[in-house]
Amino acid sequence: MATVAGAERAPTAGSGAEAVRGANTAAPRGRWRRHVPPYLAISPYYVLFTVFGAFPVGFSLYLSFQDWDGIGDMRFVGLQQYRWLLHDSVFWHSILNTFEIWFMSTVPMLLLALVIAFLLNAQVRHATAYRVAYFIPNVTSMVAMTIVFGSVFAQAGLANSLLKAIGVDGVDWLTSSLGIKSAISIMIIWRWVGYNALIFLAGLQAIPTELFEAARVDGASSRQTLFRVLVPQLRPVILFAVITSTINGLQIFTESQVLFYSDDPGTTGGPGQEGLTIVLYLWQKAFNDHQFGYGAAIGWSLFAIIALFAIINWRLVSGSERENRPRISWRKGARNGR
């Protein structure tokens, strides 16, 4: 829906620009003068981005070759930080943790989101209310929610009470490897499932209804409709969701940091450091131990990991989706009953 509205608006904006250009050509002014106002108009974003986005990115790369405690003089150490990183077992542990949590959260979350989107797409009453309800966790303060979840997953908390009510033994949510990762994954699922469901829903509504009707006429069951019609049609949207979930998932921080916060002796990700994610380790090294060069090196290593994932994803997409690109035209085609 949004795509279509945007596409309709686009020509209007284009003809407006045309008109302005025509007026400017009429005036006898230098070429650059014509181009300055639009650049000035968009400059606030780029000024802010340069100061708060591009500069920190560049500076952190510079930092990763230095030894710096945050106040005193920097000392150039070349690749030493990265060399230490390669031999740091805690760093490798944090990568493993991050991937385990990412897998444990993303797979169930996307499946659940698909089911929710499928249900929301059906004729239900108060559909908007449901959509809002599913989206609310995404805009709730994660810190506040983590504190609530901390009580839910406590030894005598809500989660264990519920388990006991159905006759299952309590789980060591916050004191065992699997428990810690499950607890964090559940928090991630809770936060992102609605968001992804809405994205799936948008993609779903772009699928021509004739396809479903045809499936129904042919006597397909709901299950068959879901997996034979809907999922293949949703492929690009699912890939989008997978990529964004990967980027988000590899940067998990708040959940572990708040859940296992300790001022003295420091936040290290709970028992066995099972909740220690890459970003939490970065934060701990840079802002607890004041090893800013090491923290920056962790940040750039994370960048490399995410870039690697992005390339793999991109290869997968470009290999099989070439005929469907660009994506917008695919959606438009779908709406027009291609």
Partner: peptide, 19 residues
């Protein structure tokens, strides 16, 4: 602080994970 952190971590590991 940077020495206390891993020692406390390992004490936690001993008593909660039985390391």
């Amino acid at each position: 602080d940077i020495c206390n952190t891993p020692v406390f971590q390992e004490l936690t590991n001993v008593e909660t994970l039985g390391k």
